[in-house]
Design a binder for these strands. Structure first.
Lengths: 359, 359
DNA sequence: TTGTACGCGTTATCAG
DNA sequence: CTGATAACGCGTACAA
């Protein structure tokens, strides 16, 4: 009595017609799955001839490896999870661009999640990524993230965790950051060189490292010129365009007027610019302006806005490199590694006083 | 002598400490894995009491389902793959925002890939997504995509495929698009109403549906005013800012000058604006301008730029809805469904002629 | 160099 | 209502 012969090929109900698996190749060639596996993964114990046969048939049948199965088997996928606050503007897209580039070079794909500046969502994003068995997690934290316990799970699962740009100040973490203090120093120093002496500073949520450091750089530069800081001139907000406008209006009510404003973000300085123009106050002659991030629109406004470039692509690439280093050595539990990138000042019209007033 | 107590838990070498699985729950409760599975997936054949016991322990041990295993078993994940040309600017981030919103509401996570306007990369992105066993693929094609064979695999695997914004004109596909023709008609009609009679049009790669339709809308409006189109006034490029500037310079050399320019994209109209301002040509008095996409910077330039809003979030949401419909009925092989969204014209300073010249 | 056998965590099928 | 068992596709000790 002959065996049924036909049934071995099973079809998922109503789905995926024809997904060629290693077993198919093995059967077709009359070899074992092990051999096929080795041929495809370029293992050493494999005859050159059989290897070629396997690869050829794989190409012919258009074999596609099922990464899910491999990930399940190894407990590790070739996916890299990224969590950012948002993807509007120039900064995060550019960082992601750098991440994708470096990741794909190393054979990883990238999942991007947005927290929309919300810890709740950030927490869920992290869960999602862990459930997807990502090989690593790259994070720039949300504005209102104060508690970092949701990242403990990542580490406790042995998944490399790298923060970039916005990092927990209080925790021992691996991170890639810009030298925000230096950038803020440079831009403030530049304003001082232009003759400005009463410089306001628009800062963001104080618990975020980036705003702390930018503020410190601002203070450093003032100190370098022997100028005592005036708390009245430091205004804290969420740094939206509207916040910047509001802050500017507030500054204009001061009896002793400011001659420059340095905002820790470009959106805020844009808001300030709009208020000044609405009141026919000249920029930079009456008030010089400078921002931070070198957003695309800084070259569009009139006058164009001076700003600090954050080396976005480099930051993404560095984050991936750091991840790769951690991935090969998952032993050291608290290797606090920190990569610091140097900012670049872009001087534009909004802060150039012309030689008449120079210095 | 006390027993070792420890060993039953097996540890992957140097990785994932403690990932509690269904088997653990089953052993702990003295029931079968099947029961646990049913309790967790809210199956009908399950006693209310046991169900509660399982759920309680699951919470207590912080059980996290391994989606990979489920996806492998079912041949379907809860991941949605998205391929876009790029994520800079406002449009695609906003669409993605809409996608994420609708997807997460339906219990799906989203993977975003960029093709960087390159078919090669687009092809690889699609492969990556299929290998990740995504439940669906949402695509806006690259500028130089003329051949669509790489999408055949998606359909042949029974994975729902939805195009949005940029869709193959020649193929039978499911898609969500803006009524580009209507949008272009509205904006051109508006320029005509303002008194403009010699209106140039900056268009993009002709094989892309969006540019075809915008151009057609432009022609429709001219026809409605009884104006014969002038081929000399239609300039085709890749629609970058530089392209727009170049086109504007070219238009300025014409013996018979234009009194308006409508570009099928905001970057191009920005370039045109910069050239005009460089030459002290007044906007809108001498030349009126209008763009398409309602990018963020259109409200920043001086004068602010008239543009057509593309309903980005709605587009993303509609794409997900369409995907969900296809997902429940994977039978109909060529259900060409098309969702068309209505654009919205934002009239700003660059096209407002003031009542003096009106009409 | 090649093959055998097992397990990763889940779900579907069938039998009790 | 519950349980045993067999897959899903791949990698890897171990044996041959």
């Amino acid at each position: 009595m002959l065996p049924p012969m036909t049934p071995p090929k099973k079809q998922a109900p109503g789905a995926s017609p024809a997904a060629v698996s290693m077993a198919d190749l093995a059967r077709e060639l009359g070899v074992s799955m092990t051999t096929v596996s080795r041929a495809l993964s370029d293992h050493h114990s494999i005859g050159a001839a059989t290897k070629q046969r396997v690869l050829k048939l794989a190409k012919k049948l258009n074999y596609q490896p099922n990464h899910l199965a491999a990930a399940l088997r190894k407990g590790q996928s070739r996916l890299l999870g990224v969590v950012v606050p948002y993807i509007e503007g120039k900064f995060f897209p550019s960082v992601i661009q750098g991440i994708e580039q470096a990741a794909s070079k190393a054979g990883f794909s990238v999942i991007v999640c947005q927290s929309h500046e919300d810890v709740q969502l950030e927490r869920r994003n992290v869960e999602t990524l862990l459930n997807a068995q990502v090989a690593g997690v790259l994070v720039s934290v949300a504005r209102n993230t104060l508690d970092y316990h949701h990242f403990d799970k990542v580490r406790s699962r042995g998944v490399p965790l790298v923060f970039f740009d916005r990092t927990p100040a209080t925790e021992l973490v691996n991170s890639v950051v810009l030298n925000d203090r230096e950038g803020a120093f440079q831009v403030t120093h530049h304003l001082l060189e232009q003759g400005c002496r009463r410089i306001a500073h628009l800062s963001g949520p104080p618990h975020l490292n980036i705003y702390q450091h930018r503020r410190q750089g601002y203070l450093d530069a003032l100190a370098a010129f022997g100028i005592a800081p005036d708390e009245e001139l430091i205004i804290i907000s969420d740094m939206t365009t509207e916040d910047g406008a509001h802050a500017m209006r507030q500054l204009l009510t001061l009896p002793n007027p400011v001659d420059a404003v340095f905002a820790a973000g470009d959106s805020a300085i844009l808001g300030a610019l709009q208020v000044l123009k609405g009141q026919r106050i000249r920029v930079p002659q009456d008030v010089a302006l400078a921002g931070f991030s070198n957003e695309g629109f800084t070259a569009i406004t009139e006058p164009q806005l001076t700003s600090v470039d954050q080396r976005c692509e480099e930051m993404g690439q560095a984050a991936v490199r750091l991840f790769l280093e951690l991935a090969v050595a998952p032993d050291a539990p608290l290797t606090q590694r920190q990569v610091v990138l140097q900012p670049e000042l872009f001087v534009r019209e909004s802060s150039r006083q012309g030689q008449a007033q120079g210095r």
